[in-house]
Nucleic acid binder design. Structure first.
Length: 227
DNA sequence: CCAGACGTTGTT
DNA sequence: GTCTGG
DNA sequence: CCAGACGTTGTT
DNA sequence: GTCTGG
């Protein structure tokens, strides 16, 4: 999973897919409109209600000493998620889904790296499976942080990369966000690659390499020079 | 027993 | 906090 | 990806 | 130069 993904501004799509209130989404936008770029939105269930809040991307486990997360904690491997001490205790009660309209992966091509954008064929918003944790700082502040789960790629994704994020369909989102669901077999069975035939991929501008670049141009297809 | 890890990926 | 490796 | 190791022995 | 660990 790359270090960059996009979120559509289509409120209706998000509200519908995640079954959250419209005011929940608008409240999120208000609360986080000046958040740093490493804060990402995600949906969780609190007291039976779907809630959208910001998480620092890069898990900080509750037992962390300094509140920092290593770069590697941005992802958790689905295959080992029940074994790894940093993740396995989170699967019971700390599950989230991150709204996403597309994600980038880079492929080495000749001298440089060509970014590709993955989307659903429908170009609609989808959900990435994640886990979160909270960490209490010395001054009693709480850091909410998260990690995105990766799995082996489907036939499309493997053209570019050897991993892909876990994408949940609507049913998967419901199961993953159901706080009453403690069935580890069922939960881990959701952590597979998304159907190839429902996804598309195309090259995009290398402008995506610079985080400061934003906007529509980054999700447009570009024509690559054939060799 | 205790110290040290605890994790994954690759444009930052 | 808990597990692992030395 | 990049920084740092790259090794073994034993009177430290 | 190449491998490994972070």
């Amino acid at each position: 999973m790359c270090g960059r993904f996009t979120l559509t501004s289509d409120i209706d799509e998000i509200v519908e897919l995640f079954d959250i209130g419209r005011n929940e989404f608008e409240g999120y936008q208000r609360r986080y409109n000046i958040a740093p770029t490493n804060i990402v939105p995600a949906v969780l269930t609190v007291d039976g209600e779907r809630v959208l809040r910001g998480f620092k991307w890069g898990l900080v486990p509750f037992w962390s000493k300094d509140g920092k997360s290593s770069y590697s904690m941005i992802n958790a491997r689905a295959e080992s998620i029940l074994k790894k001490p940093a993740f396995r205790n989170l699967i019971d009660r700390k599950r989230i889904v991150l709204p996403c309209s597309g994600y980038y992966e880079w492929r080495k091509e000749g001298s440089g790296k060509q970014p590709y954008l993955f989307q659903l064929n429908s170009e609609k918003t989808f959900g990435l499976a994640g886990l979160y944790d909270t960490w209490e700082g010395p001054d009693k502040n709480t850091v909410w942080s998260c990690t995105i789960i990766t799995t082996s790629p489907n036939e499309l994704a493997e053209k570019v990369h050897d991993r892909m994020p876990v994408i949940l369909n609507e049913n998967g989102i419901d199961l993953w966000l159901d706080t009453n669901n403690m069935d580890k077999d069922l939960l881990t069975s959701l952590l597979t690659s998304y159907p190839t035939e429902e996804m598309k991929l195309f090259p995009v501008s290398k402008a995506v390499n610079y985080v400061k670049n934003q906007g529509e141009d980054l999700i447009k297809e570009v024509v690559l020079n054939s060799k």
